[in-house]
């Protein structure tokens, strides 16, 4: 706004009654308060988690983080097994989910006949809308028996004898455990990673793509040498968002993880995750230290997820500015 050339809108604004200005100020105040509320809630959750987790950390010290024992009967608690289970199931989910998601996104943006593009896209988005409890039920009643009778015996019979891999695929076929939980999680993160990947692939300038094809590149080469390098950082961001979801997923995992506070090398063994432990044990946690240890687990998950999401935002943000 300059004083030298007066525009019609400025004149109009000056003529408005004060009431309108007050209204605007009120509007600003309300929206600002709403925004502040988000920050306050976040800080409030963090502070209450820290306060309630203090007895556990006070009692066990930082060793709480790497102690494996979890014995409610003896009031000894350590977070190592749930942290391990959370990380391993998420890694399995990423190892399976990321390549498949990329495959779907590449198919949708580069190869798919236009007629199929919408139906497949909608199917992917519907997958994201299924409540996690349904994935849990499906994992427990359909996937787990199949894993126990077919997949796991086959893995034990083949990979179980390969030196180096034998540790990962040993033990009894329980049906539920780290691997099954990882597979269910992979299906759950699929729609998230796919839709972000598809969107970032669409940001690749048409000229770049057409020029590459013009130079005689194959679809594989265009994807490999043009599309992926162009969107690399955003892809990592999308993967991290999927990872954030996998880390915190509760109900579906609780069904198929086996809920056992142990660290075992085998991917077929039952384990537990942070959120599954909390969901399982909170209602019957009788001692103060027990409750506090569960809250401390929550705090650890908060920190892990927050870090992952912050990294994701930072990477996605750098792409938008560049």
């Amino acid at each position: 706004m300059t004083t030298t050339d007066v525009r019609p809108s400025d004149v109009e604004a000056a003529e408005r009654p004060n009431r309108a200005k007050a209204q605007d100020r009120l509007f600003l105040g309300v929206t600002r308060a709403s925004a502040a509320l988000v920050v306050l809630v976040l800080l409030g959750i963090l502070v209450s988690l820290v306060i309630d987790a203090l007895p556990a950390f006070g009692n066990f010290g930082l060793a709480f983080l790497w102690n494996e024992r979890w014995s409610p009967a003896k009031d000894i608690f350590g977070a190592a097994a749930p942290i391990y289970g959370t990380l391993v199931t998420s890694v399995i989910a990423m190892v399976i989910g990321v390549p498949v998601s990329f495959g779907i996104a590449i198919f949708l943006t580069e190869l798919c006949p236009p007629m199929l593009r919408r139906p497949i896209g909608i199917a992917i988005e519907l997958l994201a809308g299924i409540p996690s409890i349904i994935y849990g039920l499906w994992g427990f009643f359909v996937l787990a028996p199949f894993m126990q009778t077919t997949v796991q015996p086959a893995l034990i019979a083949t990979l179980g004898h390969v030196p180096g891999l034998s540790l990962l695929f040993s033990g009894a076929p329980y049906g539920i455990g780290l691997l099954t939980a990882g597979i269910v999680l992979a299906i759950m993160v699929l729609p998230f990673i796919t839709s972000i990947t598809r969107d970032v692939f669409n940001t690749v300038p048409v000229m770049l793509r057409e020029s590459a094809y013009g130079l005689g590149m194959t679809t594989w080469e265009v994807t490999r040498h043009i599309v992926i390098p162009y969107t690399r950082r955003a892809l990592v961001g999308g993967v991290m968002l999927g990872l954030g979801r996998a880390l915190g997923e509760t109900m579906a995992v609780t069904f198929v993880i086996g809920n056992s506070h142990r660290i075992a090398a085998s991917l077929l063994s039952p384990a537990t995750t942070i959120s599954a432990s909390i969901a399982n044990e909170f209602s019957e946690a009788t001692s103060g230290l027990y409750t506090s240890s569960l809250v401390a687990l929550g705090l650890i998950l908060f920190v892990i997820t927050f870090t992952v999401l912050a990294l994701a935002k930072w990477m996605l943000g750098r792409v938008e500015t560049h």
């Binding site: 409610p72 329980y174 809920n259 056992s260 537990t272 399982n280 019957e284």
Partner: peptide, 17 residues
């Protein structure tokens, strides 16, 4: 090694809710 309580440190097995 294990003792008795409403939840204990199970040496083996699957937990179900």
């Amino acid at each position: 090694k294990i003792g008795s309580d409403t939840a204990v440190e199970w040496p083996v097995g699957l937990g179900a809710k």
